[in-house]
Design a protein around this nucleic acid. Sequence first.
RNA 1: GGGGUCGUAGCUCAACCCGGUUAGAGCGCUGGCCUGUCACGCCAGAGGUCGCGGGUUCAAAUCCCGUCGGCCCCGCCA
Length: 559
Amino acid sequence: MRTWCGSLNLSYRGKDVLLKGWVQRVRDLGSLVFADIRDRTGLVQVVGGRELARLRPEWVVEVRGTVREREAKNPNLPTGDVEVEVKEIRVLNPSRTPPFPISDEIEVSEEVRLRFRYIDLRRPKMQRNLLLRHRMSMAVRKFLDSQGFVEIETPILTRSTPEGARDFLVPSRNYPGRFYALPQSPQLFKQILMISGFERYFQFARCFRDEDLRADRQPEFTQIDLEMSFVEEEDVMRVAEGLMREAFSVAGIELEPPFPVMSYREAMERYGTDSPDLRIPYEIKDLSGFGPGGNRIVGQALEAGGRLLGMKVPGGLSRREIETLEERVKSAGAKGLLWMKRSEKGFSGSLRGEEAWRERIAEALSLGEGDLALFMAGIGVEKFMGFLRQAVAELKKIELEGFKALWIVDFPLFERDEEGRLASNHHPFTSPKEEDLSILEEEPLKVRARAYDLVLNGVEIGGGSIRIHRSQVQRRVLRLLGVEESKFSFLLKALDYGAPPHGGIAFGFDRMVMMAAGEESIRDVIAFPKTTSALCLFTGAPSGVAPEQLEELKIKIIS
RNA sequence: GGGGUCGUAGCUCAACCCGGUUAGAGCGCUGGCCUGUCACGCCAGAGGUCGCGGGUUCAAAUCCCGUCGGCCCCGCCA
């Protein structure tokens, strides 16, 4: 019977044990040799003579021996009170010298880590992260099961839909020139399952989007996808809150539902983003009402239909820091940054203008002596102010501790895309608010959606909506979007066969685990992630294929 | 699609700005010594296409152009 290395303690004193694992390190003192043996549960020291001296890091071994109390204990090691006196050691497999040691202390470039992922995953941090991921998924499954949800798998080979992100395509051999698409989400299938009468569905769904990557974005990722029949917004939100509470509690993080609710408009006004981090204390104020105040830049901005937005930075910033911020917002696309500082001598800074005007602005921001205010003027500056708010918090090294969740609701159903056409803010199956149906065609941009986003510490962690369950409403929305009905005829038809009112939500599971683990990158909670240029450094995917394979698919590479 | 940043020993980095002997350090590795170590210690040693290609120059790790790759951001992500 094998004993886990990490489980050994004084209660094993005198017992014979069999350990299996990897050699962490060998300390050769001559006729006395120590080795640390590691398995998934931890490390334990074994002690013996010259027979241990030939061991090298990462060799796979089997050790038989007797547990004894140590002469010199190691308080830094959970098993530090004991050691195993070796009776027999067998090398099951030697190892080449690893490119980097199995330790959280050592910094290794991500490139090397991904190339040797099997070694990287031996590191305690990565083992912890993937174990946490497992426990969170188990907690979620248990919770959803207890709430009457049924896990149902939906296809990976499915139909390309023109809306939304770029699809990954899979060529069909049986139908040359035709393609399957990998799902961007199981959206339509889960709606169909509601029509099929399952009432409550969930799935840990792998989703695929062929877009450029980020620290929190991978081309394939995992969503906790769920859908419910006969529900309103609040019903879905309560289930989602319970799910979040259960998932995060396994990481020792207590979320306390119900989460506060904020309208999209309020979030944009106060924080300049639809996913605000409420732990940051700054707020944005609209100062357009005070007029141009003799300031040329502000005057031009207001005349063009733009706004003057300001934000107080208590305690101020140095000139150098303001310059740094300006560079950062400019690289994000902003035109520039204005500032004003209040000192005992009065106002200073680049927001010049009439003294009374500056006084009124300072008052509106409750600017005290030593405080700084930052401003932007123009059209669409809200989101740059939101970016600035984050950047200032970073620069001021504001302690961002704890977890603050909130719901964002009352999104507009549509937005204008670059070409000025209507586009869905969420997706085309999101229901408009009943009371806004009458203005759907006349004033589509004023129509609010029955959608809700769940934001945790400024990260969008989930989003969902009550769906359209009447084909006639779905037709009107598709028409406004300029989408041919034929593309979704299967959905429209299904809606006419007794579709119940339904709605749901999907969570970015990788992001949830990332936050619970305190990681900055989603790659650290995914066993085999892609690089930011969508390569798998471990297998070398994507790769070329044999000419015969292309031949069979009737595919020709043209460049 | 765009911007930034990095690429030198197995790993992490220095030398690069301002071109000029034999490209260094720590860790790791190999060998030797050592009975209480636990980041063991001490002694000795090996180890480099300076990402790749081209250019400038008497001379390139260093300057220029291109290219490949890692990371971060903007666009994009219904």
